[in-house]
Write a protein that binds this DNA or RNA. Sequence first.
DNA 1: CGTAACGTTGAACTGTCTCAAGATCCGTGG
DNA 2: CCACGGATCTTGAGACAGTTCAACGTTACG
Lengths: 252, 252
Amino acid sequence: MKNNKALDNPTAKRRHGGIDPRLLAGPCMACNTRNMAICIALSDEEVAALEAIVTHQTFTPGQSVFFEGDPADHVYNITGGMLRLSKLLSDGRRQITGFLLPGDFLGFIRGDNYSFAAEAVTQANLCRFSLGDFMDLLDRFPKLEKRLLERASNELAEAQDQMLLLGRKSPKEKLASFLVRMAERQARALGPSKELRLAMGRNDIADYLGLTIETVSRCFTQLRKDKILALPESNIVIVKDGTRLRALHQPG
Amino acid sequence: MKNNKALDNPTAKRRHGGIDPRLLAGPCMACNTRNMAICIALSDEEVAALEAIVTHQTFTPGQSVFFEGDPADHVYNITGGMLRLSKLLSDGRRQITGFLLPGDFLGFIRGDNYSFAAEAVTQANLCRFSLGDFMDLLDRFPKLEKRLLERASNELAEAQDQMLLLGRKSPKEKLASFLVRMAERQARALGPSKELRLAMGRNDIADYLGLTIETVSRCFTQLRKDKILALPESNIVIVKDGTRLRALHQPG
DNA sequence: CGTAACGTTGAACTGTCTCAAGATCCGTGG
DNA sequence: CCACGGATCTTGAGACAGTTCAACGTTACG
């Protein structure tokens, strides 16, 4: 907060190169997710403005970023680890609506309160922005807003895929879809690999796919017996027959 | 199309009040959804710019606006009637991801093709914009982009609600949620009423809730026998016990 | 009227959940 | 080093909710 003073009213100055050199060396500049996150829309100078209002946070597995119903006063970028978003019914039934990975944005907000909870699945690193600061940024950098709209459109399409999955797919198809999509995301981040590491447990998978943990387990076993997968450990999936896995994912 | 010629390159002119008077009397100016649609972000002058690039279309019940996989080259505003958005699996299983009403926006797009189909449920009126024109408009009117981001955030929250419904609610709860939400939307548009008119058939409701048509029918009967609803006609629902209906809906 | 689309109801079936037990893995402490 | 407890995962048996299949009722319309 203190060392941001140089940027309190610096728009013109920044435009012409007068950036505090400390900021050009800041963590955002060298961020490993800069090319995936919403920041891809920003120039070095603009990232410096981002840097001026950001707070970096770390969460341990299971820790909550915020609860469903909390006042929605911050938005986040994930720079490391995995988060889960979830909604609860009063009797404890839970639906996980998504898993967030490095580069993902957290903070499409309706109204004054978060309508879902966010928790760390693994150790996780987040950049936090106060909503007010972030809104100001949006006004200053239209590119950022465009990028955000793109992101939101993407998430909407994914949400629709997930509705199709939840409403109309069999448990086996659900698990296959889940694995294919997680493999794609992992490939995008780390390059292609036959080995998929699942950071989340069976319980999270079940609550993401609208199943019980027993059914998830049985489907894993079935896919293993069908020789579509190998499971050297319960969290490590080796895709042995990608064709048949993808056939289950999109029947036809 | 023809009478838009006066606006082919009119930015400066429009900014300073030199608007073709024919446009100030155009259908967008007097549009009954102007205060609900994304247009709420726009001044009279800006609506005139909208008017310059819009095409008005009418669809009959069952008619397709576009198919899943079609090139995504247009966006739409709904000004009358009801649309359904849906996704198909190759064996015919269908998931309806939403119903659109007057004031709703259709066109959050990922990639070059629509990832879902859009069809008219009732007779429907749409304003159509070519994607290119609309993008230009976004650049010119940042307020419009903000409004769109708001909309997208809203839709994301609704999509998450629907995931909770599809993944974790019982058929009875699903139907109750559906009725409560439809009643709220109808109330927002037409004012509060105990009588809810469902424009869509049982099949559409089933495909929206991830159920079979028989189960939907049985749940209606059950809610009627529980004296929570009355059903003078199959498409007209009278909510007799809103408290118990909302208890089944369970917001959280 | 006759037919087709839509909705309701019934009976049987089946897949998924529930409940229960056993297996595996982990960190902790004896 | 092994023993222990807790958490996680797998497996099995039975129950039950929701689907499937089939029949019937209703409404709209040529």
